[in-house]
Nucleic acid binder design. Structure first.
Lengths: 96, 96
DNA sequence: AATACATATGAACAGATGTTCATATGTTCA
DNA sequence: TGAACATATGAACATCTGTTCATATGTATT
């Protein structure tokens, strides 16, 4: 087992916090396929726009999603190669 | 991307909840090396026994740790092969 | 049986978290 | 410029979460 820094585990907990809420993980999962706008995500998840927007900010701060503007619309997409792998591993775990 | 069940993502969020708290992840991490008693864990993490005990129950319910009694002492150890991999991947992520 | 040790448990509390509502900001198009 | 659309934001609120304290349960030893 490799030696790790004192604070690393706190950062790891912060990282996993992103995946510990069903709204956030559903947002990330629906971005697996392709980028989507805030409105599209809200419709997909059947939740109101503000709730999605708040969670997207959370995910953006964690650098898990990025966005780009196209006119009035802002498209969000995954910003981290690890996201796919981490969630996939989680899915594998629970489906056993 | 594979097709997943409606409820799977909720379960995945539940799974990651285990790793989203620094106390729990530190407990799990110190069990990487070997099994440890509640008191040993409390000393290692410099936290009181009750807090550790509560979190161990949490982790036990999630089937991430198991325990065995030896006299007065109860030893906890990891109960899931995935735990090691999931946390390792988290560590890798934050150390980049 | 009484004491000491190890762990578990429930209640109480403070702080964190997620959602909603109202509204602000930013963009497009007429 | 004004209206319509898309998104962001702050405040308020209810709920959830993690810790502590006090105490209960379980085991070993004398």
């Amino acid at each position: 087992m490799k030696q790790i820094n004192e604070n690393t585990l706190y950062d790891v907990a912060e990282l996993f916090k992103n995946f510990s809420d069903s709204t956030r993980i559903r947002i990330l999962y629906c971005l697996f396929e392709k980028e989507r706008s805030v409105t599209q995500i809200a419709e997909l998840l059947q939740m109101n726009q503000s709730a999605i927007s708040h969670q997207l900010r959370f995910l953006k701060n964690s650098k898990l999603v990025k966005n780009r503007r196209e006119g009035k619309t802002i498209y969000y997409s995954l910003d981290d190669d690890h996201v796919y792998n981490i969630i996939s591993q989680g899915i594998e775990h629970v489906e056993e």
